[in-house]
Amino acid sequence: MKDFIKACFLVAYRDLRRFWKFKHWLAAQLAMNLADVVIFALVLNNMVNRDYIPDYVKFMSTGVLAIATFASAFSIGREVGGEMRREVHHYLLSLPAPRAALAAGRFIGGALRGLVYQLAFIVLNLLVVGVPGPVQALAIAYTSLLFSLSMSALAIAVVSSTRDFNLQSTFRALIYYTLFFFSNVFYPKELISLRFPGPLAAVVTHAPISRAAEVYRWGFGYYQSLDPMALPEVTLWAIILLAVAALLYTRNLSRQ
């Protein structure tokens, strides 16, 4: 067990350390996420229908917290894909570490990236939206942890399914954009229910990013109440995605 934990820690540490190396990616991602709040939301605030969204800047700040965490946790997929193309995974597979520790370490590494990256946006939300109470703070921390863990696992499992660069990127982009757009980050669920067919509204409402964004909106005080199913759904998403991802990743790694 001690060996397992040590290997897991070392693998996670390797991914977290490397996060800083992609300065260009971080800078671009930060610019995009910040621009969504300080430019897009601020300007659009003058145009949005107040009946739906009383304050679009606050609405978007909490939403951006969800997509920032998602995007940074999801970014681990890019590297895992790169490693598979360069056959760096052969090196990882040859190391004296159990396969399960390898998978767990990578999921945790990706999750830690998400958590580290979201810190700046938590500060932004504290300044722009409000300060959470102790229960809300716990809910935010719980959601962040599970959400980033499940998104990191999802990215890793998807990208390890193929060694073809084009396919890897297409899968990643497809999932990224689907999760990104089919969420309530940019538009409230009430509007989705009004303008889109029922099943689509349900998909958007129960999507992992939507659920995380909802917890954040309630946590920082933008919403007064929280759907009682939001936190259980965040947990459920995490369990399902982690289980599937662990299976897929270990199978894909040792497929040869």
Binding site: K21, E79, R86, E87, V88, Y91, L95, P96, A97
Partner: peptide, 22 residues
């Protein structure tokens, strides 16, 4: 017994394996 085997083996690959940023 892959986990056990790996405790004994060290390999220098033909094509060096590393990510370019490290």
């Amino acid at each position: 017994e892959g986990d056990e085997v790996r405790k004994y083996v060290g390999i220098a690959f033909q094509e060096p394996k590393a990510m370019w940023v490290d």
